[in-house]
Computed example of a mutant assay.
Amino acid sequence: MNLVESLRAHRRLAIVRGKDPAAALRTVRTLAEEGITAVEVSLTTADALSVIRQARTELGPGALLGAGTVRSAADAERAVDAGASYLVTPALVDGLEPFGTPVLMGALIELALARGADAIKLFPGSLGGPGYLRALRDPFPEVPFVPVGGVDAQAARDYLDRGALAVGVGSPLVGDAADGGDLDQLRARAAVFRRVAAGETP
């Protein structure tokens, strides 16, 4: 089994994440029946290891059945023991080499947390937008994110609605005030962002 070759050939990886183990297993089964060759069961799924174990039994040893949201070597060990044939991490994770299992690894966020970050600066926020933050909330529900870069009033509202701890705002708020610009306009912009932070319409 070569994960990279499979992904290159099929260009899709189904990610199963849910609160109902039976429904998650049905989903894996249905995806396989529909020709989705690579399926990842996130470890945030209820009773994820049992889902992986049962799916492996049903789909056989050749199925591309992986475990996602692997955040530690201990997670990896449990997932491989349950039958995962590849691992997907949301960020950098050390200690996965001994398992001899293909790894699709995320980057940066876990490294920052390991180095003592109290919150994560999501920069440039404009690159992925509020949708990127929404996607990060599933594997990192407890991590406080602060999007920075290209955050106007509407984007700020969208980020906050999607669970951002706060937003870092530069020129859409400050404008040219720090270069001697009109302070009344700065006050007006500040009022807009205050309303946004309070959950009101920009």
Score class of each variant (00 low, 15 high):
6 S>L: 14
8 R>Q: 14
9 A>E: 15
11 R>M: 02
12 R>P: 01
13 L>I: 10
16 V>E: 09
16 V>K: 02
20 D>S: 10
25 L>F: 12
28 V>Q: 05
29 R>A: 00
29 R>F: 03
29 R>H: 11
30 T>N: 13
31 L>D: 02
34 E>V: 10
34 E>F: 14
36 I>A: 13
41 V>P: 00
42 S>W: 04
43 L>D: 01
43 L>Q: 02
44 T>D: 13
46 A>Y: 10
47 D>L: 03
47 D>K: 12
48 A>R: 11
50 S>W: 02
56 R>P: 00
60 G>W: 09
61 P>V: 12
70 V>W: 06
72 S>Q: 06
74 A>G: 07
74 A>I: 07
75 D>V: 06
75 D>M: 06
76 A>M: 02
78 R>Q: 13
83 G>L: 07
85 S>G: 12
85 S>Y: 03
93 V>P: 04
93 V>D: 06
94 D>Q: 14
95 G>F: 00
98 P>L: 04
99 F>G: 07
102 P>K: 02
103 V>S: 11
107 A>C: 01
108 L>Q: 15
110 E>H: 15
113 L>R: 13
114 A>I: 03
121 K>A: 08
121 K>V: 15
122 L>W: 04
125 G>M: 01
125 G>V: 03
127 L>P: 03
129 G>T: 11
130 P>G: 11
132 Y>V: 04
132 Y>S: 04
133 L>S: 10
135 A>C: 09
141 P>L: 12
142 E>T: 14
147 P>H: 06
152 D>L: 08
158 D>G: 05
158 D>I: 05
160 L>M: 12
167 V>A: 06
168 G>Y: 05
168 G>H: 10
173 L>Q: 09
175 G>Y: 09
177 A>Q: 12
178 A>N: 06
180 G>N: 05
181 G>K: 11
182 D>Y: 09
188 A>S: 14
189 R>Y: 12
190 A>W: 13
193 F>H: 10
198 A>E: 15
200 E>I: 03
